[in-house]
């Protein structure tokens, strides 16, 4: 059966920049009010959208995400570790409530809407800080505008490629190591095998170094070898072999130093 996909509102980069300029000097409580009253009236959607998300669905989604954020301390500042756990919960919400197609999720304009209209307060709470000297918010622009690093889009893609369970066990750095190498890890079965195997690496050599080393080894091997033909057990064996090499190389380096 063909899955049912919803299309979400879109805002262009120019509109997103305007939105950011308009909210950055506001206190979080005021931004929250703006987001609470967001509407799809006048919004642009994918021109051939079969089902458009409605105000009620967007408000429901917002409410759910804000509730989870509150359970983690929103609007107060919390530790980075807790913010990462919060994102683990978001992965599940996205899987349950956001029926978005990969085609739609590849369009940054959709994520501009999530990052700067529907959930701008959550974006700023997660990644921004209020500069009391300048009396305005600061945030790394990648979290607002870049497809692979923006606040909500990156979470959707993590859930889609790695699955919510595995994605929530990997740290930000670890996930970036995998998902920001699409020329290597574009095949979800392979990305999952790599993420799963990585989690079994001894903790003393985890710290992403082994993932970096393994990625270099995969790059060399995959210049002449394709993983698409491999069945799950063969994929696991291949990934295991490369990780074993990377781990022993790391352990030797650690011993020698």
């Amino acid at each position: 059966m063909t899955p049912v996909f919803f299309c979400y509102p879109r805002i262009t980069l120019a509109q997103a920049v305007q939105d950011w300029t308009a909210i950055r000097e506001l206190p979080l409580v005021q931004i929250q009010k703006i987001c609470d009253n967001i509407t799809i009236v006048g919004a642009e959607f994918y021109p051939f959208a079969e089902i458009r998300s409605e105000n009620s669905e967007l408000h429901f989604l917002r409410q759910k995400i804000v509730e989870i954020a509150k359970s983690y301390g929103y609007p107060n500042q919390i530790s980075s570790r807790l913010k990462v756990t919060f994102e683990g919960e978001l992965l599940k919400i996205f899987q349950e409530e956001v029926a978005m197609s990969p085609a739609e999720a590849s369009n940054m304009n959709v994520w501009h809407f999530f990052n700067l209209r529907l959930l701008a307060d959550i974006t700023l709470w997660r990644f921004g800080y209020f500069d009391t000297e300048k009396n305005r918010w600061s945030i790394n622009e990648e979290r607002l505008y870049m497809l692979n690093r923006n606040m909500f889009g990156r979470i959707w893609w993590r859930g889609y490629i790695l699955g919510p369970e595995l994605a929530s066990q990997l740290s930000e750095d670890e996930t970036v190591q995998i998902l920001e190498r699409p020329s290597l890890y574009a095949y979800p079965s392979f990305a999952k095998a790599v993420g799963t195997r990585y989690l079994t690496s001894p903790s003393k050599i985890r710290a992403t170094r082994v993932l970096r080393d393994a990625s270099k080894r995969f790059t060399r091997r995959m210049a002449v070898l394709s993983v698409f033909i491999m069945q799950e057990s063969q994929l696991t064996h291949f990934v295991d072999e490369v990780f074993n090499e990377a781990e022993s190389a790391m352990l030797t380096t650690l011993r020698d130093s």
Partner: peptide, 13 residues
């Protein structure tokens, strides 16, 4: 034989 499809900007094969 295999045919593999990759899209830009989607990161999936």
């Amino acid at each position: 034989w295999l045919v593999v499809a990759k899209c830009k900007p989607s990161p999936v094969a």
